[in-house]
Design a protein around this nucleic acid. Structure first.
Lengths: 159, 159
DNA sequence: CAATTATTGACAGCACGCTGTCAATCTGAA
DNA sequence: TTCAGATTGACAGCGTGCTGTCAATAATTG
């Protein structure tokens, strides 16, 4: 795979370029898999991720806080949250510290949907990880986290 | 990070779940970085990737072939290609084997844009990879490629 | 206390990937 | 040769993430 397209790259840079290309493809495949996984519960990948973020949260938060936790823009999460509220999976609770910034709470129905998908996700991801050593996954995670850190430093966070 | 949310997961599955979450964030950050990188040439991340795929291709191909190479749906690439053609960076060449499926060729202007971005991308990715060992990147690439392979097997390819 | 600044949500609009459907075209088997 | 199936591009529509702008509300500062 060493060809003219990697002129100007350090060995690390050439390897990283390949890794980034593979990451794009992985993202597409994960999104497709997430769609299949969540469809049976009547959700989508993005809605499930937002629901999870709220479910995993240690305390009720406004939309903007959840967005920051997820590393997404505020408005992206806002619209998904509005959809989830309309679907009855999330509810807005009054925020004693801020009139407009209502707190997000998961409803009983939302909790049921979250647990239903969790029961599907666990065996799915176990199968996906089968055959890969924990050490390798941790190395990969380390590389990805290092990239995220570097990219976040050089990136003017939106707004 | 071992908490109740990883019940039902094997050790590999728990690590993989973390890795997938990190991958989503990485994708978002890479897209943002790609936007900054390509904006100066008047392109976007997606258009640059399609242009690169055509530029790297060993022979002229119809849109559907390029889409398969990139692991994307045919129509996603089709619309970007139409935009690139309208912008004068790509051109449609007659295909002796198929009247409708014209072949994609890069124009002089497209070549200039591609090279301009390549000159920006190389130092950018070198800096990004700096401090990460090639061995680690290759392990991460190996993990990602393994995931892609597994996901592609279990996924009914679109259409 | 008053005025400036920061945060938050509402609204509108864009880029991109997906799907489904349709007609034109090519391919291969009967 | 003919006809059924595959391939390809055109068109329309959806979900998701982004940006920019605006008004309402908090927080901070003089």
């Amino acid at each position: 795979m060493k060809n003219s397209f990697y002129k100007g790259h350090t060995p690390e840079g050439a390897a990283m370029t390949q890794f980034i290309r593979a990451s794009f493809r992985l993202h597409g495949l994960l999104m497709a898999a997430g769609a299949r996984l969540t469809r049976s519960v009547g959700l989508t990948s993005a809605r499930w991720q937002v629901l999870s973020a709220v479910a995993r949260s240690s305390e009720p938060k406004p939309v903007a806080w959840v967005a920051r936790d997820m590393g997404l823009a505020r408005q992206s999460v806002q619209r998904v949250v509005n959809d989830l509220e309309a679907a009855g999976l999330l509810s807005f609770q009054p925020n004693p510290r801020h009139i407009r910034a209502t707190l997000l709470a998961i409803t009983d129905e939302g909790h049921r949907a979250f647990e239903a998908i969790t029961r599907l996700q666990a065996p799915w991801v176990n199968g996906l990880a089968e055959g890969t050593k924990v050490r390798e996954i941790e190395t990969a995670l380390h590389v990805v986290q290092g990239l995220c850190r570097k990219l976040q430093e050089n990136a003017p966070s939106a707004e």
